[in-house]
Design a protein around this nucleic acid. Structure first.
Lengths: 202, 202
DNA sequence: ACTATTGGATACTGACACTATCCATTCTGG
DNA sequence: CCAGAATGGATAGTGTCAGTATCCAATAGT
């Protein structure tokens, strides 16, 4: 398959395919001549994955590159797979909050072990809590813990579902499960809110 | 308070404050002369809210403007408050998916009433499901429903917490609760995953 | 009176995700 | 076998977004 055919099947302009190649998101085709290369189904699948990441999942090109690298070159140990996956997804924490006071308090209440959590993730929680505060939106501890328990409910099932046969499969599952499921969860929350609201007020 | 003082207290450059004013995110101060104005605490609070929305909540300037407009000019009826809130937050659905087949099937399984949901939200769900598919990440119906039930669990509590005394308070609660809580939920999910993973493999 | 600051307008910047152009080769159809 | 289309690779340009910076005449404070 030549590039124009690949681009057509992926419904992308040829220039965009070249761009993804330049950015290191799409592996090169097999050169049959200095200016001729062949592409196969793996290139098409990769393009679909890229579009899913930069589209619905809202990832940047840089973040997408980190994610794809982590998938194709997964950590050997399963131990900190999640940490590495989250690190790939979490953009460089531009400026760490000075303290994680609020985050650590909440994690304490939930009985989660802070020391086993990636600092970037704790920082993200702290930032989210600061954001709520800055918006003058005060959430009671009880409600925060309710959110935490709800997310733990889904997380436990997700961790159970991680395939343990190969590191590649595990990495792919964890990374895509983190990134691609997020828009799913958010849209489900909005729909659930509307349904709950209709039931209560409608 | 003059603009330089306002900017200093908000820890923003003066030029940025002027920019938010130009963009209609920050109301004008009281002019005491053709080139002199006074600002008060309401301007400071508004700036903090803007920063929370464009920062942690990841909203664009245009979306932030819609949100602020919806808050300061809330719908009179409580009926479709959520619809309006979500509409304010959901960017113009650049290109609607042709069908909502997957989304409607899932909503049917969950027993949620599609007809009472904002089309934009259903479209978002459809896009999320398409994104998963494009990433070659197949999620079983059972798992999807688990996600849905988990989100309904938090949504029911959230809807119960909506203040019913004034439309302004209700609008503020709903809109900020939608937008500012999203990063909170996502960071909690990641931390929950790490905790669950540590418990299982560590 | 004189310097700093202000509101308001306009112009500029840097990052980002493409998109277009160029060019020397190579493939393809008649 | 040869003209015209397509290719890989490099480089340059585009549109959008979120600020920044500059300029100005008109105050403000000292």
């Amino acid at each position: 398959m030549r590039i124009s055919q690949l681009a057509e099947r992926a419904r992308l302009p040829v220039a965009t395919v070249k761009y993804y190649q330049r950015e290191g998101l799409l592996h090169e085709g097999v050169l049959t001549a200095p200016n001729q290369a062949h592409y196969d189904e793996s290139h098409l699948r990769r393009l679909e994955l890229i579009r899913a990441l930069v589209g619905p999942a809202g990832q940047s090109i840089a973040s997408t590159r980190r994610i794809l690298t982590a998938i194709s070159d997964p950590p050997t140990s399963e131990y900190d797979l999640l940490g590495i996956a989250h690190q790939a997804v979490t953009p460089a924490p531009e400026r760490m909050p000075a303290t994680f006071a609020r985050a650590e308090r909440l994690l304490g209440h939930l009985g989660w072990d802070v020391s086993r959590c990636a600092p970037a993730s704790v920082a993200a929680l702290e930032e989210a809590l600061l954001g709520l505060e800055a918006g003058g939106f005060f959430v009671e501890d009880e409600v925060l813990e309710r959110y935490g328990r709800a997310m733990m409910g889904v997380a436990v099932d997700e961790v159970d579902d991680v395939p343990t046969d190969s590191p590649e499969a595990a990495a792919r599952f964890v990374i895509l499960g983190t990134v691609l499921v997020e828009p799913l969860l958010l849209s489900l929350r909005r729909l659930a809110q509307q349904t709950a609201s209709a039931k209560r007020f409608g």
